[in-house]
């Protein structure tokens, strides 16, 4: 029996360079615009934005109420908005009820508050399994939830984007908003971790 020899795939790095060259030559892409775009997502758009939102909600009860009633507008009060943040819904995690966010169909993620998604969020194992066995998936990621905590998995299947308001950890009563923001992690705002007491 004869088998065809598999054709080696061209390296993706080189194909990326090739597409970039072709589009620049045609005047369709400006490399300086590309650089600026990349720099924005490497430095200015990331979980530090969401952390500011969470820290404010922890310290300002009226802001917290506005945030839970209408996430997009309350987040925009802090000057945070942009692509993939058209309609953000904020849900609160409590000892009784724990929300965890996924996008099983692609990797939809609230960019303005969390930046671009991390590798585990985009990985097929997370996309496939968290809607099937969330308790086991969270345990593999290092979060063991008590049996009595209800789990709600949010599959982001439209342009609605979800942000988790994590529980404020004990022992942080005297901390300032900035100090609190430094404690808030990306993983806690997706619901695969809790914010830890420092």
């Amino acid at each position: 029996m004869s088998e065809t020899t598999p054709v080696a795939r061209l390296p993706i790095e080189l194909r990326t360079e090739a597409l970039e060259q072709l589009l620049i030559e045609r005047g369709l892409v400006d490399p300086s615009v590309m650089d600026k775009f990349i720099q924005t997502y490497e430095t200015s758009v990331g979980p530090m934005n969401g952390a500011k939102v969470i820290a404010k909600a922890w310290t300002d009860p009226e802001y917290r109420a506005r945030l839970l009633a209408g996430g997009t507008a309350a987040i925009a009060e802090l000057g945070i908005k942009g692509p993939q943040g058209e309609h953000i819904v904020v849900v609160e995690n409590t000892p009784q009820r724990h929300n965890v966010i996924v996008c099983t169909l692609c990797s939809c993620y609230p960019w303005p508050v969390l930046g671009l998604p991390p590798s585990w969020y985009k990985d097929p194992a997370y996309r496939a399994r968290v809607v099937r066995a969330p308790r086991a998936v969270l345990a593999e990621m290092g979060l063991e939830l008590p049996a009595e905590t209800e789990i709600v998995v949010r599959d982001s299947s439209s342009e609605v984007r979800w942000l988790v308001l994590p529980e404020r950890p004990a022992g942080t009563e005297d901390m300032s908003e900035d100090e609190l923001a430094a404690l808030v992690t990306r993983d806690a705002m997706v619901g695969v971790a809790k914010v830890k007491t420092p």
Partner: peptide, 24 residues
């Protein structure tokens, strides 16, 4: 892309705090 509930993907990746935005 319709992966919800499908099997065969192994364990989930463990998050790391200092993951760069772009690995390469």
């Amino acid at each position: 892309a319709d992966l919800g509930g499908t099997e065969g993907w192994g364990r989930v990746k463990t998050p790391t705090a200092d993951e760069p935005v772009f690995a390469q």
